[in-house]
Design a protein around this nucleic acid. Structure first.
Lengths: 197, 197, 197, 197
DNA sequence: CATTAACCGAGACGGTACGTCCCGTCTTATC
DNA sequence: GATAAGACGGGACGTACCGTCTCGGTTAATG
């Protein structure tokens, strides 16, 4: 986001903020990312284009804010059981990646963002960091309980779980439903606990 | 592809076919998907734009053909050992997703695919089906050897392995190097064989 | 025209010649010069484009041949009376410039042709030369009869008469009907005979 | 012209208006109508193509505005002498049709006009109407002086004079120089005054 | 009678201009 | 100084024609 607020003069109109985001979400659902035009958003929100560019650096930034940002997981529970913790993680990621807005925006966002390494790193950090911390928490707890085979990298576990959900939805184009979540949780638990103790 | 062959008249020039694909691949690696222009491809291939549009419906179609189509894995080996088979699978997918052309093209392609169900089907057939068959072969062989815990779905295994590599490269933006491949192979083997026998 | 015939081999098919010209004339009337495409002519005539280009150097050449060429005046009569001779000249030019095909083709042809001085001179000569000779004949006869004021240039007279008809039809966009022809003839006769004898 | 003005927002930049017309006039003289490209005009004027298409419906519209519109004759003098008035008329028309821009644009424009009746009306109003009024003025003055043979139609006189100059330049492709202007003036004066008084 | 050279329809070829669309910035008048 | 409106420079898109070339096949005159 651009969003360094102004110093003097008339303050930003919060109704404009809301209208922009609402129009973006509506249009994402109606026409998809590709046909979502800045002019279109401005028109739908009854807002000038400048008002959008004053808030967001561009289309990617806008869509990221409207469709992806803030969809955060609840904090991890520490159920005392690795499998339960994993089920919670898998469910959270699945829910986050399954929302209609995310489904409409994420692939194109990923594409736009991949084109520029700087932007990409920033976006990915935002997208990934919180989840990563939760994975580490879960693994630490399990390690403390002695439920884990010794050397296991949180980054690898994260890529496995996140990748499994992402691939299911965006590569294989099937729903990441409860049954699938269960299978993934099960396999992950087996992999992490095999040979432990 | 467009590609309905003509009935009479001058046949398509295969040298033009080749020049277009070669130029596309070169330019994907040189400038990336975003800066890849139809005029640029035409110029590099010494070809008229019409010659491209005669063959491909647009940029997506062209890039799909140039970057994804025909990039097939070697046939699966049946080493007699599940872990070795998995290592081969993981390595093949990693190699396929790591090529500069694929790295340049895949995210944008994925975005296009998500936006259009027709394209999606074609994409799935090409990108996913062959790999899936290999996964099934590997699992069947392991099952026949009795190395497998009973109920395991090839589709789930595929999404796990493919997702792990994809997430590593395109979401976490790190190389899917040998060390990573080994970790994924190891975890997958553990998950699949846990409790077997 | 291109039209240097071949030395050996199969001779040109006269049915093709006719079909090309017929299609051109039909299409000139149907869609006008601007929308008349070589492909369109070829398609309508059931003929390959090469067959057209074997006969004509290009669109202008084709249209010139189809719509303008050969529309020649009858030979001048020498009625013994300048006014009568002028009426014949005016009528002939008016008839020639009024035909539907000429009306459809001439302005655009003039435009295309004006773009290239060499082509322009060639076309104009063809278009103009015969008429010019007739004007000279008429003036000579009048001069011999003593009906003419002394110094009068055939080129100027020609430009006056031709221009009057052309301007009437193509600049003012009104029919060069009998009444108009009569007025022009009358004025021309007055101008040429004023002060004679 | 397109030219329906906007209601709010940034107004059209008159410097852009001027730059577009200037570039068009320059390029008409430099390269002619055929080689005059919209991109070329945009580039020369340092203007986006959209800025041109916002003002003009296409190449014809642009060229019409640049080359023909507003090129008006000076007001007619009333010298008290028909021949002098005619010389002025002939000279004015000749000057107007001889300018490099008009020479480059008029034939193509005429072609476009002939192809589209709507355009034709606009063309006629601009190109023809003012001149016609002048012809009528001149004839009226002469008539009041009694210098004119009785029934003479301004439209016919206009077509004669205009046609003579047009034919000289665009059909015979010779300069409408002083000598030619004198001959035309002379013949016209003779035709109009023959038998008068 | 066989050869041969130019013909034939069909349509792909390189090239070029078209007019449309979108991006992200800038410029008005208004609040 | 923020706002709605919308013009601005820039640049890619996909379409349409031009005039040439290439394919398989045909047809008359030559040898």
């Amino acid at each position: 986001m651009t969003d360094e607020p102004q110093r003097g003069g008339r303050p930003r109109d919060t109704r404009v903020d809301a209208a922009i985001l609402a129009a973006t979400r509506t249009l994402l659902a109606e026409v998809g990312y590709g046909a979502l035009t800045m002019d279109l958003v401005a028109g739908r929100a009854n807002v000038g284009k400048a008002a959008i560019y004053r808030r967001y650096a561009g289309k990617q930034d806008l869509v990221f804010a409207a469709a992806v940002h803030g969809r955060t997981l609840d904090p991890p529970p520490d159920s005392g059981d690795l499998r339960t913790d994993l089920r919670w993680l898998v469910g959270g990621i699945a829910r986050s990646l399954s929302s209609p807005e995310t489904r409409a925006a994420l692939p194109a966002l990923l594409a736009d963002v991949t084109a520029d390494d700087d932007v990409a790193d920033r976006f990915m950090r935002t997208f990934v960091a919180e989840e990563r911390a939760y994975v580490e928490t879960i693994l630490d707890q399990a390690r403390r309980r002695g439920d884990l085979r010794t050397p296991v990298d949180a980054e690898v576990v994260h890529s496995l779980v996140l990748g499994a959900i992402f691939a299911r939805i965006y590569l294989l184009r099937k729903p990441a439903d409860k049954a699938y979540q269960h299978e993934v949780t099960d396999l992950a638990a087996k992999a992490l606990t095999e040979g432990a103790r």
